[in-house]
Simulated scan of single mutants.
Amino acid sequence: MRMIRKLLDAIYLGAGVLAAVCLVAILIIIVVQMVARWTGTVFPGAASYAGYAMAGASFLAFANALNRGAHIRVSILLNALSAGPKRLLEIWCFGLAAAIACYFTYYAYWFVFWSWKFKEVSQDQDATLLWMPQSVMVVGGAILSIALIDNLVSVIFKGNHRITRDLVDQSFGE
């Protein structure tokens, strides 16, 4: 069981690192595009590549952000409830979120499949095969689905979720 936990945590962290790499790629693309304009050359498809990296950064970061408490959760209601109803509400919320994420991932897969089958290309100058950047959406959605199911199972069997909070110390010089 510890090996599965380490594997899942490594997947979440790896996806978060890849999301950060996508953010750095956006920066590099923008800088290269600026240099290209200054020198009078053209960087075909720069806006598309930056868009693909933005989508990659978003979808790959979902699971890592969830487990680090970066997603918005309405905890006012949860904090007002006693342990029993709170657990039932968390099971409901994680179950519903996992079902929606799995539904999204399923249909995103078929979206990518048909893009691959029909060899759809970007309408920009780069003419990128669209299934390649769209695949990141499926991978990120699948990792988020796994993270939500992981938290759901944790709430059901252990009574608490795996979401941590990165709190900033509020004691300014005390």
Score class of each variant (00 low, 15 high):
A98S: 11
Y52S: 07
Y12H: 08
D124P: 06
A70L: 09
Q125E: 13
S145T: 06
Y12K: 06
L129H: 14
G14A: 08
A15L: 01
Y12E: 02
A20F: 06
R37K: 13
R5L: 07
A47D: 13
L60Y: 15
K158G: 09
F59M: 13
W131M: 03
M3A: 11
I146A: 09
N160K: 02
R165Y: 00
R68K: 15
R2K: 10
I30F: 15
E120S: 08
V136H: 00
M54L: 13
A63R: 01
T164R: 12
A108G: 09
I4S: 10
I29Y: 09
G140F: 02
A65K: 00
Y107R: 03
Y106I: 04
F43N: 09
L18D: 07
F104P: 01
A108D: 11
W131L: 08
Q125L: 15
R37I: 07
H161N: 14
V21W: 14
W131P: 04
P85S: 08
A36T: 06
R2C: 00
S122N: 13
N79F: 06
I26V: 15
L144T: 03
L23E: 05
I91C: 11
Q125D: 15
A147S: 10
A147I: 01
F172V: 12
G140A: 00
M3W: 14
S145V: 05
A57G: 14
A15T: 01
I149Y: 04
M137P: 05
E174A: 15
W114T: 14
Q134Y: 13
N160R: 14
T105L: 01
S145L: 09
V155Y: 03
H161Q: 03
V136D: 09
V136M: 14
A83K: 14
D150R: 02
K86T: 00
D124V: 03
Y52A: 07
L89M: 12
G69C: 02
R2Q: 11
I28F: 15
S82D: 14
I156M: 11
W92T: 12
S122M: 11
K119P: 05
Q125H: 06
S75N: 11
R73C: 00
I100L: 14
A55Q: 12
F118L: 09
G69Q: 00
R87E: 00
F104L: 13
F94T: 01
I143P: 02
F94H: 10
G84M: 01
R2H: 09
V17P: 02
I11M: 08
L8A: 02
V21D: 04
A97F: 04
Y109N: 05
I28C: 13
L96P: 04
S58W: 00
I91A: 13
I143E: 00
A147H: 03
H161W: 08
T41K: 10
Y106N: 06
L96Y: 06
A20I: 07
A98L: 00
L129Q: 15
G51D: 11
P85V: 04
I100A: 10
V112I: 11
L129R: 15
A53G: 01
V35E: 10
P133G: 06
P44T: 05
W110K: 08
H161L: 00
A65G: 03
S82T: 11
Y106Q: 01
A98C: 06
I11F: 03
N64V: 04
N67L: 10
